[in-house]
Design a protein around this nucleic acid. Structure first.
Length: 201
DNA sequence: GAGTAGATCCTCT
DNA sequence: GAGGATCTACTCA
């Protein structure tokens, strides 16, 4: 059990990093409550050449500035006015790669996750989907720019390795506006794991 | 079980 | 002033 080093995030191949994130553990300690879960589903956003990315074409605004930070930084933003989506920034400074964490399997602090999600019953919707898992772990937009080497949000390697044959590759979700880039196979999830948001159309 | 509308607000044009 | 890397509840069958 150890935090992923900066050398994990600073690599250039965002697809490779995405695959390796499956089976890792996302941990947060927010408001004094520790919660964690195993990552089961991710999507890669390949920066300036990816029309689905906020940083497409080198677009740079107050919001996307975080994506240009060095690997190992949290990029959180608000979607549809309601949902906080959590991304991991990868690659070197000035290269705006990011990986969206879409789903995870809850491990620690499940009762607190249920409180945050206002759920009385434990079911698969607890951390299935990017907006849901952020709410469960207490991640909000004010955490954007946080370092993943600090003591608020981080990712641990607990010795679990997902074999390639257990991985499924597919199109990303909800990016129809990205034109031909919507067809890119940039989504990865663990085969037969119930904690996966949904199947692509 | 499948399909759809509403919530809700920050960011960029 | 429009729209989005979503989720849930509600309708209809």
């Amino acid at each position: 059990m150890q935090k992923l080093p900066s050398s994990f995030y600073n690599r250039e191949n965002v697809l490779q990093i995405s695959k390796e994130l499956l089976g890792k553990f996302l941990v947060t300690k927010i408001d004094g409550i520790k919660t964690s879960g195993m990552i089961t589903e991710v999507e890669a956003y390949a920066g300036v050449i990816d029309r689905a990315s906020h940083a497409y074409g080198g677009r740079r605004t107050d919001r996307t500035e975080i994506m240009y930070a060095k690997g190992g930084t949290a990029y959180v933003y608000l979607c549809y006015g309601i949902h906080h989506l959590f991304n991991v920034v990868t690659n070197k400074k000035e290269i705006p790669h990011a990986i969206l964490i879409r789903a995870l399997e809850p491990v620690e602090g499940i009762s607190d996750m249920m409180l945050r999600r206002k759920k009385s019953k434990f079911d698969y919707t607890l951390t299935k989907g990017p907006g849901a898992l952020s709410a469960a772990l207490g991640i909000q937009v004010n955490k954007t720019g946080s370092s993943l080497h600090g003591n608020t949000i981080w990712i641990e390697d607990r010795g679990i390795k997902i074999p390639t044959k257990k991985m499924v590759v597919s199109k990303r979700i909800g990016v129809e506006y990205a034109g031909s880039d919507a067809a890119l196979l940039y989504r990865f999830y663990i085969r037969d794991n119930p904690w996966v948001s949904r199947h692509p159309k």
